[in-house]
Nucleic acid binder design. Structure first.
Lengths: 119, 119
DNA sequence: ATAGAAAATGATAGTCATTATCAATCGATT
DNA sequence: AATCGATTGATAATGACTATCATTTTCTAT
């Protein structure tokens, strides 16, 4: 049921948001179960957690959903998924230059989207 | 007093860490004051807050301390400040390509440092 | 089927970093 | 010195999340 709600939800949902959704179908569900299940989905490789820096863990689908970074508008909150393969390579190089073996990275770009810029 | 402790502290200190330091000189100080003051220092342009993704806000000096990103060893926790001007440019391009005006970004690379790799 | 073990659930209390509140103190200005 | 606003420290509150624990629910072996 939780998996279903998660898969149906487009974008990046928090456990809290999913809880509100699922409660509509089954008011008896507890939020601890949502938190637990989302962690399980991450372990199972179905979900990936993302950190936008606001203290809330959001989840996005992982299946057929390649790695990407995020571009967020600080005004309206809209977010775009982006990837730049050159940046990815340079990150590898950068880490290697410092003797690090790179496991993963987090990159979030904050700015103003076209809409909000023109206002 | 807080500013002093912050300036003396090398690297990235949390309010909590600064509190422990300052308490030694003045046990009467309250931690709320540290939290408040660190925010003031950020507003005043003396400090910059950094988010390593562990739920703790750390502060670094801003004066004469250019923008940079972070490379963190997931084993021993050591962190290195890095900059790659090409990456920075590409981030600008990337944002522009999506119609965004870029204000700032956050990039944290997680991996294993040379030390920890060789163990 | 069925008893007994193991896992999952919901309710709720607890964490932990941070923030709000509020009375007391400090400080500048008259 | 009196006044009024800003700052402080102590403490309660917040909010996202986690731990606990008694109670189902779900296996699994018989």
């Amino acid at each position: 049921m939780i998996l279903n709600a998660f898969l149906k939800s487009a974008g990046h949902s928090s456990s809290e948001e999913l809880y509100d959704l699922i409660k509509r179908d089954d008011p008896s569900i507890g939020q601890a179960t949502i938190y637990r299940t989302m962690k399980l989905l991450v372990d199972a490789g179905l979900a990936r957690s993302v950190d936008f820096g606001d203290g809330i863990v959001r989840y996005e689908q992982k299946l057929g959903h390649e790695h990407h970074d995020h571009l967020i508008c600080e005004q309206c909150g809209i977010h775009v998924e982006v990837v730049d393969s050159v940046i990815e390579e340079l990150q590898e190089d950068l880490a290697k230059r410092h003797g690090f073996r790179l496991y993963r990275h987090k990159m979030v770009l904050y700015g103003l989207c076209a809409e909000c810029s023109s206002e």
